[in-house]
Simulated scan of single mutants.
Amino acid sequence: MSYDTQVPPTAAPLTPMRNGLGTAALILGIIGTLSGLIPLLFWLAGILGLIALILGLVGKGRVKRGEANNKGVTLTGAILGLAALVLSVVGMVITFTAVSDAVDEIDKAIKDSAPKDPSAKAPADSSKAPAAEKGTSLADGDTSVYDDDLQVTVSDPKPYTPGEYAVGHTKGNKAYQVTVVIENAGKEKFDTALANVSARAGKNSVTAEQVFDGKTGAGFEGTVLPGKKATAIFVFDAPKDAGNLTVEVNPGWDYNASQWELKIG
């Protein structure tokens, strides 16, 4: 008597998930990002961020092939690695800038503490002053000459009729145009970008608004080479009964402004 014994099939062994790279990417990404928040640790953030990004990308490939099932962890690790790289660049810039500023300050302190040469001439005032005494107003056609031989001249104001769509003109007021000439008699080129022209009018010195109507108001542009000059026309709005117009010209941040007292009306 024989018995037919049937052996049940054995289940195929499960392949273990290879989640190590994703987990490592997440841990290194977190540490790298935190390091990036401290500028001095930019180097550490850069190294850890790069490794985390690489491990995250490799781990993502494993997830696609079904060899790993921690897609969220892997993706987060790669993103944190990229963030750490960005923070490392920012930290590097901040650190190098701070070091450069510190070196400049040290050099300046060393120069300031060095013994002075009695025969050396004292440095000129960093703010270039006009030849005219401070507080003295100039008349129309007068020229203000600065220490670096920059010359500014303001002409006699002339009545001006603003256009229909002019900006800055108030109905009932009068408008006057003045011509400002900047001549560079020095040896260095002069940038007119920072030149500022303003005005006040009347006995109460109210602000005279600058008028823009497409024909005037552009101001100065470009650079004036040595031996050359630049001319610009400005139009200012003044009360109808104003008898004077005070025009102030400041060639730049390191210059003192000059004023012209002009008669109008």
Score class of each variant (00 low, 15 high):
residue 121 K to C: 02
residue 178 V to K: 04
residue 75 L to H: 14
residue 173 N to E: 07
residue 128 K to A: 15
residue 100 S to A: 12
residue 164 E to L: 14
residue 96 F to M: 10
residue 184 N to R: 05
residue 87 L to A: 12
residue 172 G to Y: 08
residue 172 G to V: 03
residue 120 A to S: 07
residue 85 L to W: 09
residue 160 Y to W: 06
residue 135 G to H: 00
residue 100 S to H: 10
residue 146 Y to K: 03
residue 151 Q to F: 13
residue 100 S to P: 01
residue 130 P to D: 05
residue 159 P to D: 12
residue 95 T to H: 05
residue 86 V to S: 08
residue 89 V to E: 09
residue 112 D to R: 03
residue 187 K to E: 15
residue 168 G to S: 02
residue 86 V to L: 09
residue 177 Q to S: 14
residue 85 L to G: 10
residue 136 T to N: 06
residue 78 A to K: 09
residue 139 A to W: 00
residue 183 E to M: 13
residue 141 G to F: 03
residue 155 S to H: 01
residue 94 I to H: 13
residue 183 E to G: 13
residue 107 D to K: 02
residue 86 V to K: 01
residue 113 S to Q: 14
residue 157 P to S: 03
residue 109 A to M: 12
residue 111 K to I: 03
residue 113 S to D: 13
residue 182 I to S: 09
residue 172 G to L: 15
residue 128 K to W: 06
residue 153 T to G: 10
residue 118 P to Q: 05
residue 139 A to F: 03
residue 119 S to W: 12
residue 154 V to Q: 13
residue 179 T to F: 00
residue 141 G to I: 12
residue 163 G to D: 12
residue 171 K to D: 14
residue 123 P to Q: 15
residue 175 A to D: 07
residue 88 S to V: 05
residue 106 I to V: 00
residue 181 V to G: 11
residue 75 L to T: 02
residue 177 Q to M: 08
residue 106 I to Y: 00
residue 158 K to Q: 01
residue 94 I to G: 05
residue 87 L to R: 05
residue 125 D to Q: 10
residue 102 A to D: 07
residue 167 V to H: 04
residue 170 T to G: 03
residue 150 L to I: 14
residue 179 T to W: 12
residue 154 V to K: 11
residue 118 P to M: 06
residue 125 D to C: 09
residue 173 N to D: 08
residue 146 Y to E: 06
residue 153 T to M: 04
residue 101 D to A: 12
residue 99 V to Y: 01
residue 125 D to H: 14
residue 167 V to Q: 06
residue 74 T to N: 05
residue 174 K to L: 11
residue 151 Q to V: 07
residue 80 L to Q: 09
residue 165 Y to W: 13
residue 77 G to D: 11
residue 119 S to Q: 14
residue 156 D to E: 10
residue 127 S to M: 15
residue 140 D to C: 11
residue 127 S to A: 11
residue 149 D to S: 11
residue 102 A to E: 02
residue 169 H to K: 09
residue 171 K to W: 15
residue 135 G to Q: 10
residue 164 E to S: 14
residue 159 P to R: 15
residue 173 N to A: 06
residue 101 D to L: 14
residue 83 A to D: 01
residue 138 L to Q: 00
residue 76 T to P: 00
residue 75 L to K: 08
residue 104 D to T: 12
residue 139 A to E: 00
residue 135 G to F: 00
residue 134 K to H: 09
residue 120 A to M: 07
residue 170 T to P: 10
residue 116 K to H: 06
residue 106 I to N: 03
residue 113 S to N: 15
residue 122 A to E: 12
residue 106 I to S: 00
residue 132 A to N: 11
residue 151 Q to N: 10
residue 168 G to Y: 02
residue 148 D to G: 03
residue 108 K to H: 01
residue 92 M to V: 00
residue 86 V to E: 03
residue 127 S to I: 14
residue 102 A to V: 04
residue 167 V to K: 02
residue 168 G to T: 03
residue 133 E to M: 04
residue 114 A to Y: 09
residue 124 A to C: 03
residue 112 D to L: 09
residue 166 A to I: 04
residue 187 K to A: 15
residue 172 G to I: 13
residue 156 D to M: 14
residue 172 G to S: 11
residue 87 L to V: 10
residue 159 P to V: 13
residue 147 D to R: 13
residue 156 D to N: 02
